[in-house]
Each structure stands twice: as C-alpha cells, then as structure tokens.
C-alpha cells in the first residue's frame, strides 16, 4: 500500500524539529530514512506509526487519510531497536498478541502464528521466552509480531543496531527477503549507510529535519546533490580538497590536475574524490607522502598527505608494496571527480 506524507511538521515545545516534509513510499517499496542522530528520522517514524501527533501536514495509507487516526487503528507494524518483546510471554504469545487483541479464536491465532514463524524461521522456538533467545532470534520474533496483522506498512527502527557484526549481515538479507516475499511497504530508520544501501530500494537522506536527497542507492552514491550527501555515503569516506578551477584545476596546495570534461563552473570549488578514484591505476598527477596504511583484509586504505597540504585517501588491493613514509605520485580519475561550490551545493 502506498504511503504518502505531505507537509509534515513536528514541534517539541518551541523547537520545530521537522518542517514541511514530503515523502512518498510506493506500494511494496522499502525506503530508508538515513541520517545522523538528531536529524528527525525517528520522529518521522513515530509520526507515521501514530505514537507522535503531527503538528501539521497529512498522512495517507493508500486512499485512507490516517492523519488523526490513533495508533491502535492504523494498521502499522513496528520493529523497535530493542525489539520490545513482552518478557513474561512465550514466543507464541508474543507473536499472537496482536490477534488476541482482535479477539480471534485460539485455533485461528495458532494457525497464523505458525505461518509467521515459518516465514521468519523460528518454528522450533515457540515455547521459549524472549530471555532464552539470541539477539537474532528476538529480532525474528519482533518481525513476526509486527507482521501478523498483515499491516499496511512495516516500520523498522534501527532493527540491526543491537546485533553483532555477523548477525547483522545475516539479518540484513533476512529482513530484505521477508519484505520482498510479503510485498509489504516498509520504512527503515538507520544511521548506517551500509544498511540503507544494501537493504532499500530508495534512500531518503535527512539532515536537520529535512530530506536533502531522495534517490536510489546507486544514484545517491555516484550523483550526490551536495557535499553533505557525498560525505555521508561511501565507506571508506570521500576526501574533500579545496581548489580553484580555471583552464586546469589548481588545488589549494599549488598542485594541479586536468579539468574534468563536464565541469561547467569556474572559480573556488571543493573537489570530492572517492578513494577508488585516486591511486596508481589512474596514472600520475598528485605528489605526496603516505602517512597511514590501514590493512582491511582484501583491501588496504592508504592516507596520503599531499605536498603543500591536504589529505587524500586511496583504496588499493591488499599486497600493494606501499609503506608508511613512501613518496607517491598518483593520478586522479578526473571525470569521476565530484565538484561542489563553497556552500556545499553540487556544480
């Protein structure tokens, strides 16, 4: 079911946290609300599920206006960061609780619980209590409970934040699989760009209560609209270097590189260079000294301090004969450079 949030405004006391935000999530689409802490992503989520009242704007699920509908009647499933399972109930009672509220018969509840526990693959755990489950299993139970009512919308609030690295990887694809299988419209709130990029159809990147860019993960990465977006996405992160563009591009440290072909602007700029676009595979051009080598298994991160000032990062396959202190002269893939005006807007 399509979710449409229009002109959403939220105030806490005198502070306006979110102003006139628009967001449309297509039917069966999974969208990520991504952003640093305090950007308003959780506030948006709580407004959609009805826990927070909206101070302005409207919310539609399909054709139904739910702006003023209380949370109980909204048909929204929520998975909380700490799962919020009911500790005194068994897994079966936990998953079946929403149906018990709807006064369904015992047999009907049992049947639905079995269907859901099969979907999230916890069939053998129904008699346990939440405290006897691992983090990943609790997560699955929370998912099953959120989905048993066949809600219009599924909301996931940092669902992977409490899991260890290996489980996180596993649950990432699990959640995606379950969302695809059921075709439910979903919103994922996260501050982890990897989660957002790997799980969602589109990402809404938020900052200071506004969506700064809403795009597919690929577009967001290769075509960021501002310096903030470019800096937020990408791991290892992009390097920024101030420069002046004329016939060629002169960096603030005095070194120069060829002018990117499609660069229109002239004058003061900030260049964004992703690690994979700087290195020996791109020829020569920028001179400096290796100040740090960080092995990452398959790859190595290399920080280079350019002559005359400015740091830039490169990523190379492991085993490259680079040591700390080495002098390097590496090239930049000039056509992949992202250029921003001094105020951060992409040019």
């Amino acid at each position: 079911m399509e979710l449409r949030l229009e002109k959403f405004t939220k105030r806490f006391g005198d502070t306006t946290v979110i102003k006139d935000m628009d967001l449309t999530v297509g039917s069966g689409e999974m969208i990520a609300l991504l952003g640093p802490s305090g950007c308003g992503k959780s506030t948006t989520l709580f407004a959609v599920c009805g826990i927070h009242k909206m101070n302005g704007g409207t919310l539609h699920f399909g054709d139904r206006d739910v702006t003023t509908v209380p949370a109980q009647e909204r048909s929204v499933g929520v998975v909380f960061q700490n799962y919020a399972l009911y500790p005194h109930m068994t897994v079966e009672q936990n998953i079946g609780f929403p149906l018990k509220i709807q006064k369904l018969g015992k047999a009907a509840i049992r049947k639905e619980v079995e269907r859901l526990s099969e979907l999230v693959q916890i069939g053998e755990l129904l008699d346990r209590r939440p405290a006897q489950l691992s983090g990943g299993q609790q997560q699955r139970v929370a998912l099953a409970r959120a989905m048993i009512r066949k809600p219009d919308v599924l909301l996931l609030d940092e669902p992977l934040a409490n899991l260890d690295a290996k489980l996180r990887l596993e649950m990432r694809s699990e959640i995606r699989r379950i969302q695809r299988e059921t075709g439910i419209t979903a919103i994922l709130v996260t501050h982890d760009q990897v989660e957002a990029m790997s799980m969602c159809d589109r990402i809404a990147l938020m900052k200071d209560g506004k969506i700064v860019q809403l795009d597919t993960p690929e577009q967001m990465y290769s075509n960021p609209r501002s310096q903030f977006v470019a800096g937020f996405l990408g791991n290892p992160p992009i390097s920024f270097l101030p420069a002046t563009a004329g016939a060629e591009v002169v960096l603030a440290n005095g070194q120069s590189i060829a002018r990117p072909r499609d660069l229109q602007a002239s004058g003061d700029l900030i260049l964004g260079i992703r690690p994979e676009h700087f290195g020996p595979q791109h020829g020569e051009g920028l001179q400096g000294e290796v100040i740090f080598v960080e092995p990452q298994g398959r790859e190595e991160l290399i920080d280079v301090r350019l002559d005359g000032g400015g740091d830039i990062r490169s990523i190379l396959s492991a085993g490259a004969p680079i040591r700390q202190g080495d002098r390097v002269n590496w090239g930049v893939a000039t056509d992949s450079i992202l250029a921003f005006a001094p105020n951060g807007v992409r040019v």
């Binding site: 109980q72 929204v76 499933g77 909380f80 700490n82 919020a84 009911y86 609780f97 509220i101 709807q102």
Partner: peptide
C-alpha cells in the same frame, strides 16, 4: 522500557 508500551499500542491494545 517505553518500547514495550509502544509495541503494545501498535499491536492494537
């Protein structure tokens, strides 16, 4: 935890 109550409300109680 607050979330237990929020979850309960979301579950329709």
């Amino acid at each position: 935890p607050w979330e237990i109550e929020m979850a309960g409300v979301q579950d329709g109680a």
